[in-house]
């Protein structure tokens, strides 16, 4: 296929021909079970849960627990993201239970309900950068500094960000899913209050409350802000960009290639770099923003 692309004058192809070629390449990377993401999602959640008894019993120092818990929250979202797109197994497939298990379990450290994340994420894909309908639009910012300012403001009780997912669910007739958020957050608060008043407030702050804030900001930066910046265009080839992270692909959690995810959401995260490299000439021809990657 590489040779086909190299020997083909892409500029001479019609939109339809380009489309066929693009889909042929993308198709090679789809339909594979991302076992790495499965183990990552379940393992990460189990390590996070294990931290609590390990730190409270003194087997792991609190400072080390804080670092591990922060990493756990940062790493919590992406396996669920694979499940949200049915990449592990689609509806009716034998491994569907695993898809749903990973989806629910991996986001426990973030205290986010999987069904809400899936429903709102689909809306984000459908309406990326739409000021009215993209439920992640208020994560956009003019610059890096502005992103962190907005991240602080979005955390405040009066922030409109608090209602973004609820409004999206209401607009799409899925308000019943809000019960998931209510129950999960109530359980989280009751757990935190009970532990705090039992003499473990500092431990809970460093094992869950602060890691959750850091992790959410980190995830928003790399998943929502960086790949959609400046976020003022809509359309399949212009609403998401490739970018070169100065901290590399691991630290940016593969989001340099997020444009591939928006074009072909069924390609597993681990295969987006390879798919990007093969699709790059076509994306360039399409006028995508490739950010020097």
């Amino acid at each position: 296929m590489d040779q086909v692309i190299e020997s083909t004058n892409l500029a001479a192809l019609s939109d339809e021909e380009l489309d066929v070629l693009e889909r042929q390449i993308a198709g090679k990377y789809m339909g594979k079970v991302p076992w790495g993401a499965v183990m990552w999602g379940i393992g990460n959640c189990l390590i996070f849960i294990a931290l609590f008894p390990l730190v409270l019993s003194g087997l792991v120092p609190l400072w080390a627990g804080f670092i591990v818990a922060t990493l756990n929250v940062i790493l919590a979202y992406l396996p669920s993201h694979e499940a949200q797109h049915n990449i592990i197994a689609g509806r009716g497939k034998p491994l569907r239970w695993l898809n749903e298990l990973v989806g629910h379990m991996s986001v426990i450290p973030m205290v986010y309900p999987y069904r809400i994340l899936r429903a709102t994420h689909m809306e984000h894909h459908k309406h990326t950068n739409d000021p009215e309908k993209d439920c992640d639009i208020d994560l956009h910012a003019r610059s890096q500094a502005d992103f962190f300012r907005k991240a602080l403001i979005n955390r405040q009780p009066a922030s409109t960000r608090n209602g973004a997912y609820g409004n999206s669910l209401e607009r799409t007739g899925q308000s019943h899913l809000m019960l998931d958020a209510l129950l999960l957050n109530a359980a989280y608060l009751i757990f935190m209050f009970s532990m705090a008043w039992s003499g473990y407030a500092l431990e809970m702050a460093l094992l869950w409350w602060i890691p959750k804030m850091i992790g959410e900001t980190y995830i928003s930066y790399y998943l929502a802000w960086a790949p959609h910046y400046p976020g003022n265009e809509q359309g399949r080839y212009r609403d998401t960009r490739a970018f070169k992270s100065r901290f590399g692909n691991l630290v940016s959690m593969g989001m340099q290639f997020h444009i591939i995810h928006h074009l072909y959401p069924r390609i597993p995260l681990s295969l987006t770099p390879a798919a990007y490299r093969e699709l790059r000439p076509i994306l360039k021809q399409r006028g995508c923003e490739l950010g020097g990657l």
């Binding site: 608060l189 935190m192 209050f193 705090a196 008043w197 003499g199 407030a201 500092l202 809970m204 702050a205 409350w209």
Partner: peptide, 14 residues
Amino acid sequence: AFALGFLWPLFTQL
């Protein structure tokens, strides 16, 4: 509720 349920014991412990 968050202030009384979590921050109060947290500040006390700190």
